[in-house]
Computed example of a mutant assay.
Amino acid sequence: MIHPSEQLASVRRFEAAGFRAWPAAAVHYDGTWVIRLTAGHPAKRLNSVNPLDRGDVASITERVARAGRRFESYGRPLTFRVSPLAGPELSAWFDGEGWSRFDDSLVMSMPLVEAQVDEAIDQIPLKDIGRFVSASLEVQGADASLRAGLSEIIGAIQPQTGLFAMERGNEPLASLICVHDGDLAGLFEIATRAGERRQGHGRKLVLSALKWARLRGARQAWLQVEAANEPALALYRSLGFTEVYRYHYRRPPGA
């Protein structure tokens, strides 16, 4: 059985890796609350308050109000991302104030020594950020207005980054980002084009990215996935990923 202190150390490690792999445009600190804001992209991970110390619960009402003013200046709804590092007192405060809870998600990991990559296709990551962003937006069915913001985020990633896309001619079928950070390989923006799902494209692309990362020294793969995304969970579990911890989001009434 994992001791609670060991569990929290693991959570801290993946949370820090996530911040490095998916950098917000602006980062502010209120004690150990990390306030991440990004004008060019609406993703909740890039626009949320992330409490990182279970004991840092002083003056919650005042600090939430300060955070709210920052979010208002960016035109973003005040959002907290609640991991095991936030602790029960803050969650109790949210409950008492009637905040909604949504988008429960899992952080999953897998030792790369166990990854089924020996038969994976050797794929060279794309060097052209613009080409990858076009493929990613098309695969996800996302609005073209996100192009500049996603390009800026990818360009700001400091660890070595692999941009992977599977294509049929000029048609993108699947895409993902693999961030190699020390012995960790984080997978982000994993998506398969509607109409092309359940044909193995995602599995092949994930394995190619993990092979790329393992050859460069990564020892552990990890990713984040919404708990309601059963097809994705089935794929990741079949590859050998297991749950490390969960997080969710909170917003005030009416937000």
Rank of each mutant, 00 (worst) to 15 (best):
R69T: 12
F80T: 12
E138R: 14
S136Y: 04
M110G: 02
L137Q: 04
F164K: 06
Y74V: 06
A142W: 10
Y74N: 03
L90C: 06
P88A: 10
E89M: 12
G169E: 13
I157Q: 05
I124H: 12
Q140P: 00
D128G: 05
R81N: 10
D103S: 14
V113D: 12
R70V: 08
F132G: 04
V64C: 12
S100H: 05
L126C: 08
R101N: 08
G169I: 12
A65L: 13
D103A: 14
A67Y: 03
I157S: 08
A148N: 10
L146C: 07
L137N: 05
A67G: 15
A144V: 15
E152V: 05
L150A: 03
L90K: 03
W99H: 10
R63C: 05
D128C: 08
I60R: 01
F80H: 06
M166N: 03
V113G: 06
A144I: 14
L146Q: 10
I124R: 15
E97S: 06
E138D: 15
P111F: 04
S100D: 14
G68H: 08
F80D: 05
E97I: 00
R81L: 12
D128W: 11
Q160K: 14
L137R: 06
G96C: 07
V82M: 13
F80K: 08
T79P: 01
T161V: 15
V133H: 05
D128E: 13
A156Y: 08
A156D: 11
P84V: 07
M110Q: 04
R70D: 10
A120G: 06
D118N: 09
I121P: 02
